[in-house]
Design a binder for these strands. Sequence first.
DNA 1: ATTATCTATAGATCTATAGATAATGC
DNA 2: ATTATCTATAGATCTATAGATAATGC
Lengths: 206, 206
Amino acid sequence: MQHDELHTEQIILEAAEAEFLEKGYGNTKMVAIAKRAGVSHSMLHYYFKTKENLFQTIFLKKMQSFLQLLEGIFIRKLPFTETVRFIIETLFHFAEQNPQLPYFILNEILLNKKNRTLFLSIISPKIINNFSRLEKILINEIKKGAVRPIKPFDLMLNIISLNIFTFISLPVWEEIFSLRDKKMMKKMLDERRESNVQFVLNALKP
Amino acid sequence: MQHDELHTEQIILEAAEAEFLEKGYGNTKMVAIAKRAGVSHSMLHYYFKTKENLFQTIFLKKMQSFLQLLEGIFIRKLPFTETVRFIIETLFHFAEQNPQLPYFILNEILLNKKNRTLFLSIISPKIINNFSRLEKILINEIKKGAVRPIKPFDLMLNIISLNIFTFISLPVWEEIFSLRDKKMMKKMLDERRESNVQFVLNALKP
DNA sequence: ATTATCTATAGATCTATAGATAATGC
DNA sequence: ATTATCTATAGATCTATAGATAATGC
């Protein structure tokens, strides 16, 4: 039975990820994860000791993919307008590929102060450098008169709000517009992404 | 002891509201509500039968105040620019007065399909009329060339995103910027509100 | 007699573990 | 001998109720 170890551990992780992302920590039950994984629930404790532990594994993994996004979002050295477009499109694309992630992370860091502190301690160092670089470029553009005066923090929060909130509230729009069709959904999201880019770029015109 | 009825029921409601808004349905425990209210937890069942029932009372009450916001947000007949400003400021002010509410309602309608359907069935009729009126005004402004072409839904979702997400993510900014001081917080929010107005108005310029 | 309140506890559910069993590796 | 897995169950927690008690109104 030894060859099954990796396999079992893996399907537990996948089931746990699905459950935690759907329902959040408090509403997720170990028995439900076990059922979804198709193993006895004692297996979860065999591999991960406690629920808290299993959750941490998932949460850290998800923060990791969030970090990768942050790495990628600032790297390119493009003209200002293109930088803004690139940030929005990258953020939007990430959320599209991981539609449950924004709400999951938000939910856990809002409900649990420990998670919030952990999240911030991991995210902050990555943010600070990149953000201050963006800040410089922005201030420079404003000085040149190419961009309307706006606080860097406001611009950043606006971009995050416009893109993340679209996905957080997606289940509501799905219900309102009966977006059962994947094709329809894709079209709606493509339009929404471009709308966000245009909205922000226009808002920045002097 | 009869004269205490209203009083006890009231303090239970207040405690329940505080707990549900802080932690959400699943993470709120009846014993915790009872403790907060300073009564025996059997009192909660005496007045409200079940947890589900107590929650519904709170949820409906909160949707009611949300409905009142919707009533107020569209009434004024103002020039387009002033209408947009009024909508943003009213929405922002409401969220400022009820900082936990956006996340609470969002959370419950995302996690529970029954709540979502209930929410939509109550909200929709109020929205549809007002929204189609705003739609007409917007299309007219676009025709006149006074406003850049944008889909009414996008504009609406953008306004909601920019204002609601500010408050949903507030606990994070509080921790990052150590906004313990109420005065500092107020100043930050005042600036944020005006920034949102300017951002949207500028984004709408042709 | 009715109403409000508390204590005690039933019954359900959930996390976690003990102990038995089966399979593989030495 | 070690590892993986299951069943059974302990122990904690949570919702809900039964039944006793005290206070007020008739």
